[in-house]
Design a protein around this nucleic acid. Structure first.
Lengths: 236, 236
DNA sequence: CGTAGGATTGAGGCTCTTCAAACGCGGTGG
DNA sequence: CCACCGCGTTTGAAGAGCCTCAATCCTACG
């Protein structure tokens, strides 16, 4: 089941100002607009799949998606939760690798697809764009280093605290920024971010609730005491 | 204790052909040669330290070094074992971050330092160089994704198998390529690659020895049956 | 109102960690 | 040249943390 084609104009895109394309001139933006295609995916639909060849990059216009790698035993490890304004799929395309990961809609999302040829042309013609990408990639490498160390050294309890702090920012609703943000994902997805079993997540969330660090409403999780969560996560 | 200044000429550098600078023209190579400074570090000496500002990049001429991040509890997580021809320290410099990691000599090493200004000039002037860096960074991001998933999903036994297979290539002695390569590092360093306790590594190495997957000579480890190690590591 | 998928709870067990102690090996100084 | 010293390695035992399996509960949705 593929997504449904929709129409979004770059020039009045809501994420124009924060996306990776924000530095481009009107002319370049027009070219992208002409060459891109936009798609609406329903929750659970796949945007791109592990071990396939990248044909372009995806810019999220609306909604959240998860980027994960499936292990040999079938368990998924979520590498990134991307939200509107984020660009996904560019690493493998530029690195000329197959996708090492799958991207799947966590909720109903709208995504713009910029084909490889157009993207490479942009990189060729705009040194600034290309520089921005390099800087971005290097910065992400620093972040991955941090994640790797966390995974190797922190306990599950600590990692859950870190993950909740990250998710609370991702789940801020820009149209209606209620405080605190409502983290709305399955316990299994949360477990696949933290790198543990679903049951362990449930038990730890129970503990956090008793310690008044969070509250829940159905599956939704609200961070009540970020300051103390920082301590629980041993973040300096 | 700082390293000792030495003199290495780019044009007759042994790693010229395999380093990241291999694509450069003679003119650029001369400029690097003029601006760089080379240093010999003894085993255990620090090349650069976590949380300091990058002032340039390092190209390894000879020897191996470990790149690690120190966790809150003082335990190190080794992110990379770099060998001659490898370039380290460029991610943070380009990403304009502080070093997220420390680089330390695993044995006596010779390293060339190319200052930031010179490196940035190269990036400005050579699109190819800059493109190569971007591609490299993106490719490394794919690798980090793989590492992250391994760490999250594989058992310690599986991860040790994966690590030994990686190390056996890094420890090939180019001057005297004996077969099998002799992996020569402390059990503690190995534990900090795999992300486990030193004692666990020792016990698992014992098991691997009984299963004829490896043999040891003092601290040195030789991989005997790479094929079967691949199976132990669940690598598809 | 029924159903399916997700959330929760409990029990049991296994992997891995931690702590403590003994052992070996390489380097150093007498 | 040899005895000693110190770091790294090895081994053992105990226990904590986390995982798995199974059963039950909840809830959103058709």
């Amino acid at each position: 089941m593929r997504g449904r084609r929709i129409s979004i104009a770059c020039e009045d895109c809501q994420v124009k100002g924060i996306s990776k394309f924000s530095g481009l001139c009107a002319e370049d933006l027009n070219k992208i607009n002409y060459n891109k295609s936009c798609t609406a995916y329903k929750k659970g639909q796949i945007i791109f799949h592990e071990d396939t060849r990248p044909l372009g990059v995806f810019c999220i216009n609306k909604g959240r998606l998860k980027v994960y790698k499936t292990g040999d035993d079938g368990k998924d490890q979520i590498i990134q939760v991307a939200k509107s304004g984020d660009m996904v799929g560019y690493r493998a395309m530029i690195g000329e690798d197959l996708y090492p990961v799958t991207a799947e809609a966590l909720e109903d999302v709208q995504v713009c697809f910029v084909p490889k040829s157009e993207f490479l042309r942009l990189m060729e013609e705009s040194t600034d764009f290309s520089k921005m990408l390099l800087k971005e990639a290097c910065h992400e490498l620093s972040m991955m280093t941090e994640m790797l160390t966390n995974l190797a050294q922190k306990t599950v309890r600590e990692r859950l605290a870190v993950s909740l702090l990250m998710l609370k920012d991702i789940y801020i609703d820009e149209e209606n920024p209620v405080e605190p943000a409502e983290i709305n994902m399955t316990r299994e997805d949360l477990a696949n971010i933290v790198g543990t079993a679903t049951e362990t997540i449930i038990r730890l969330l129970h503990d956090f609730k008793e310690e008044n660090l969070i509250k829940t409403n159905g599956r939704k999780i609200m961070v009540l005491d970020a300051q103390r969560l920082v301590k629980v996560g041993n973040i300096y």
